[in-house]
Design a protein around this nucleic acid. Structure first.
Lengths: 135, 135
DNA sequence: CTAGGAGCTGGAGTGCGCTCCAGCGCAAGT
DNA sequence: ACTTGCGCTGGAGCGCACTCCAGCTCCTAG
């Protein structure tokens, strides 16, 4: 098959790429940048992603998509390696980011309202056969 | 005051920057890039923003903040200059973008759910004094 | 008359986040 | 033995959206 010595349910980088939508290049780059700590290797050097690693990839993906800078993701990762004592720190970072994401969503919704208002304006102008005073 | 020959309620670039949160550099750059067609000039060459221009700046700002690339904003701008005949085109572009923004918000909300689940996981682990199997 | 403040232009530079190689290794199928 | 597929490394390059000058002009207040 694919792996040299396949540990039960470990995936190769190609499979993780397919499963997440990230490219292989991005996965490798994230790892070099210290965003993905749980990735293993087969004897011949290929990356191996166990279930926990895959969950972690998805978490990082959620953080990135919600606009957390790579440096901050790294800080989150380095804030602990799964030990109980570090949980509050990581949780705090997540909560802070959560607030920012909510703010971002609110802003998007405000901007969306602006766009909708403009659409309405066009409808109105069309209905009345008018030009637009604004550009 | 500020202007050379101040037309009624025209603003200077500094005032527009203050009013919108964009920098003067960004406003000038947007204009060079063709995103801001309604900006006038005083006799001595300074930019002048009338009410319509200001509204247009806010529209462009909404488009940019919602993730529309500069090139697409330019296309929107070039799709017409306010004449009735061009309204449907611009409206179509706005509607298409609107759909994308909604999709983006939905994605953000999904990702937010992932983050919240992780926070819950940490709460649980802390409550039970456990390490985390994932990183 | 001078100084200060706002603004102008053109162009170079920056930060971020990937993205794209070239050149190579292992391993399994035919 | 050879091809095909999957993956590896290190490093260069890229696209986007600004951002930051240097050197200048003009106007107004003191």
């Amino acid at each position: 098959m694919t792996a040299v010595a396949a540990p039960p349910d470990a995936l190769g980088i190609g499979e993780v790429a397919a499963a997440t939508g990230l490219t292989q290049d991005t996965l490798r780059w994230y790892e070099r940048e210290g965003l993905l700590p749980l990735v293993g290797r087969t004897r011949d050097g290929r990356r191996t992603y166990g279930p926990a690693a895959l969950r972690f990839v998805r978490l990082v993906q959620a953080l990135r998509r919600t606009g957390m800078p790579v440096a901050d993701v790294r800080a989150f990762v380095q804030a602990g390696g799964g030990e109980l004592a570090t949980h509050p720190v990581r949780m705090g970072l997540l909560l802070a980011h959560e607030a920012q994401v909510q703010a971002r969503i609110a802003e998007l919704e405000d901007d969306l309202a602006v766009l909708r208002a403009k659409v309405q304006e066009y409808r109105h102008l069309i209905a009345h056969g008018l030009d637009c005073e604004d550009g």
